[in-house]
Computed example of a mutant assay.
Amino acid sequence: MPPDALGVRVAAVILAAGRSSRMGAHKPALELDGKPLLRHVLDAADAVGFADVVVVAGACADQTRALCAGATARVAVNARFAEGLSTSLQTGLRALADDMDAAMIFLADMPDVGPALIRRMIAAFDPAARAIVVPTHEGRRGHPVLWARAFFPALLSRTTGDCGARRLIGEFARRVHEIEADDAGVLTDLDTPQDWARRRFSAGV
């Protein structure tokens, strides 16, 4: 069921602007199971039927734009990507239309988050109570995170560097609702060649 059918307009913001310096290669373009990492995230978003999908590009912006060909996504370029993840989050939120009720923030290098979990998170969302929806696995919080529009001003003004919004999740703990994921895909962290080798081995590649 698409988010609109639940009475809320939810956007997806996919952060794909980083330099991938620890990996030594442009992470969104790395292929897993026959398609780039970014396409795994885009395909999951397309399957859910978000009201809007924004991919934030920065380093290798032209390559990132090419990876989005054929997907129902817009590309917003973050000229300040070198200043950290927070600037990409801010770029993505500023690109959204004013009628969005919430935004789900994705990382481009997390290929194992599927439509079923995303739909569960959206179904649990309630801007009056469960206004921040976070996936967990075995007690650890992961990504993506769903934020009600009421928090956009804080996300825009109080996130800095590479810290993203994790500190704000703790600050607004009473508004947080956790969804337990069936597997560790919400914790995937593909930052280094070693991480990439482990993930490809687990997939039998």
Rank of each mutant, 00 (worst) to 15 (best):
P36H: 13
L187N: 13
R158M: 08
V8W: 04
G139R: 11
R200C: 12
A11T: 08
D112E: 14
G139A: 05
V8P: 00
L42C: 09
A79E: 15
G114Y: 10
L30I: 15
L30G: 02
M110E: 13
A17Q: 15
I179M: 01
L155V: 07
C163N: 11
G18N: 15
A79K: 11
F125D: 07
G204E: 14
F151Y: 15
Q90F: 02
R166P: 00
L190D: 13
I122M: 03
E138P: 00
A95M: 06
M110V: 15
A11R: 03
G70P: 04
I179Q: 03
D162W: 07
G142V: 13
R166T: 12
C60Y: 12
V186T: 14
M1Y: 09
S157C: 05
A197K: 15
A61R: 04
N78R: 00
G114H: 14
L89A: 00
V13S: 03
L30P: 00
G185M: 10
I179A: 02
E138A: 12
A181K: 09
T91R: 10
G139Q: 10
A116T: 14
T159G: 01
V41M: 06
V145M: 05
I122K: 05
E171M: 06
A124F: 04
L146A: 07
V48K: 03
A128Q: 10
M104W: 06
L32P: 01
P193W: 12
D191N: 13
F50P: 00
A108Q: 08
L93P: 04
R119D: 12
S88D: 01
R19E: 14
L38S: 09
A181N: 12
F81V: 00
R140G: 07
L187C: 11
G185E: 13
I105F: 03
L30Y: 08
P135A: 09
E178M: 03
G84L: 03
W147S: 04
D4K: 10
S202D: 15
L89S: 01
I132Y: 05
E138F: 02
D62G: 04
L117Q: 10
S88M: 00
A25P: 00
D4M: 05
R167M: 06
T72W: 02
R74E: 11
L93S: 06
F201N: 13
L146R: 09
F106V: 04
A61Q: 03
D109I: 02
P144S: 07
A173G: 01
A61F: 00
V186M: 07
D112H: 12
A61P: 00
G170E: 13
G34Y: 11
E178Y: 10
R119T: 15
L89E: 05
G49T: 08
F125M: 08
I105H: 05
R167V: 07
A128I: 00
A11E: 08
V186Q: 09
M100S: 11
S20T: 13
G142P: 12
A131T: 03
V13R: 01
A165N: 05
V176Y: 06
G24D: 11
H26G: 02
A59N: 11
I118A: 01
A61V: 01
A97R: 13
G49L: 04
G161L: 06
A79N: 09
L96C: 07
A173H: 13
L96W: 04
F81M: 00
